[in-house]
Design a protein around this nucleic acid. Sequence first.
RNA 1: GCUCCGUUGGUGUAGUCCGGCCAAUCAUCUUGCCCUCUCACGGCAAGGACCAGGGUUCGAAUCCCUGACGGAGCACCA
Length: 546
Amino acid sequence: MGENPDFRPHGDEIPGVVGGVVARVNGLSTAEKRERLEDLAPEELAEIEAEDEGDDHDLPDLPNVDEYDEIRMRAAPNPNGPWHIGHARMPAVIGTYKERYDGSFIVRFDDTDPETKRPDLDAYDAILDDIAYLGFDPDDVIIASDRVETYYEHARELIDAGGAYTCSCSGETFSELKNGGEACPHREKDAETTHEEFRAMIDGEYESGEMVLRVRTDIEHKNPALRDWVAFRMIDTPHPREEASDYRCWPMLDFQSGVDDHLTGVTHIIRGIDLQDSAKRQQFVYDYFDWEYPEVVHWGHVQIDAYDVKLSTSTLKEQIDAGELDGWDDPRAPTLQSLRRRGIRGEAVVDALIALGTSTSNVDLSMSSIYAANRELVDDDAERYFLVRDGERFVVEGDPDAGHPPLHPDHAERGERTIPATAGVLLEPDDVPAAGERVWLKGFACVRREGDGSADDGDAASDKRLVVTDDDIDAVRDGDVDVVHWAPAAGGIDVRMRTPEGDVDGVAEPDFAETDVDDVIQFERIGFVRVDEHGSDESVVYWTHP
RNA sequence: GCUCCGUUGGUGUAGUCCGGCCAAUCAUCUUGCCCUCUCACGGCAAGGACCAGGGUUCGAAUCCCUGACGGAGCACCA
């Protein structure tokens, strides 16, 4: 109708006219439709099939990739602690793009604040471990505090270009002037004086707070966030890295990051919305140097359901110091170290984070999507065992001596387990049948509950008995009898299962001892766990997911 | 207060640039059924969304305006 305006008044009649045809086409099979289209418009068919091929990306294409010979991206963490789940988004997305475009992935530690965001010396390696856990291998690792001289050199060039001036206003004073769109008296000083004062900053002749180097942007810019921002300031506290401990004049993020992105050839910057204004700030520096600003993608914050604790490195650190958490890999902590210990593969974390895309709105990540991705990875390999929590003891009367459930229901060739029943069995309280009712002990037999438990005469109460019946499996198929897991009353293995909700104790079947540390197995009807330790008193497992 | 940005089912996402192919995709989730000696895996089915109101148009998730709600920045933090 765009082409034939005459039809417009008749728009309402269109559905009636074309409806029959549309219904007929929809009734055709895909193959038939393809055939018809090939007759009518082969070029359109080719177009559709071309679209189908390249359309399976979870992430949108990066902007303007054709304009660059190589796509280079960087993750720029602040090394103040091991990573939580939200941090994993950066390497997950960058790593995925790197694979798609055959690009580069640089890790740059932005550790230029020895005081407020004081780096943790262990965090550098911890973060690189976290990245390796996720399955990525950075092409290069650089540390900003190694590059301070480079930032000084560029600051001098910027001063020469008229793009910076030293300023001794207090933060408060300057803020007031700036919010009114007014320059401070230092703004017009000559380059020579600025050079002299900047040299004195580098030499440490000022105390913290006495002097800064500002970038000359536009003091009347309508966005107050962009007006003459600070590029360098004095910090009295020495940097924790010995190599950098003598510096007192430190660059701010926007200067350091902007210079490094250019010098390391970064083509695409991916970062959070908290840095939305950074590109606009840094653009002023890029203009003075006549550099081309990289492409930028911003994304929103990630919140994760299922955790009480906040997704914040500093909060986690406080909780660990206060003893509320056992450490960074406490199962209650939303950290990558915790997920790793629980047996969740980095690949599953990456899959779930990639599915979030890169939208600028804030997103909630469900742990269930990480669980779903991980279950897909581990289910086929996970051998099955029984664990009984809060076991109630019953004697068993009748044959056989032991149960033999398979190690994996889909893989009979892997063999079966042996669970002795002669010394009695343990059942979870929820699974105990009422007096006279039956229950199927999985891998063993159908049993009937005798006695109602009222005559409590000790450990092997005479009325806590399970008598083997002659029912066959049809009893289960008919839906009359529930199948439950169980453990032997003697010879089982004490297990402590650590979960995000706290520790749970139980007894596992004897064959559980054959598992190796790091194996991910499934306790049937409970969930997947990772074997953490086989101790002399007990074994410890970490709960993975249902 | 000033300045940016966003809003599609419970969650995430596709579609928005270039209005009709959208009675809106896919995944997760929930429920039911099938399979099954696990509440796992697998299969089938169902459930559930275009923030609101105006405008433009034959036609709006898509374009325009207003509002609501949410987020971010205005640091000598990153």
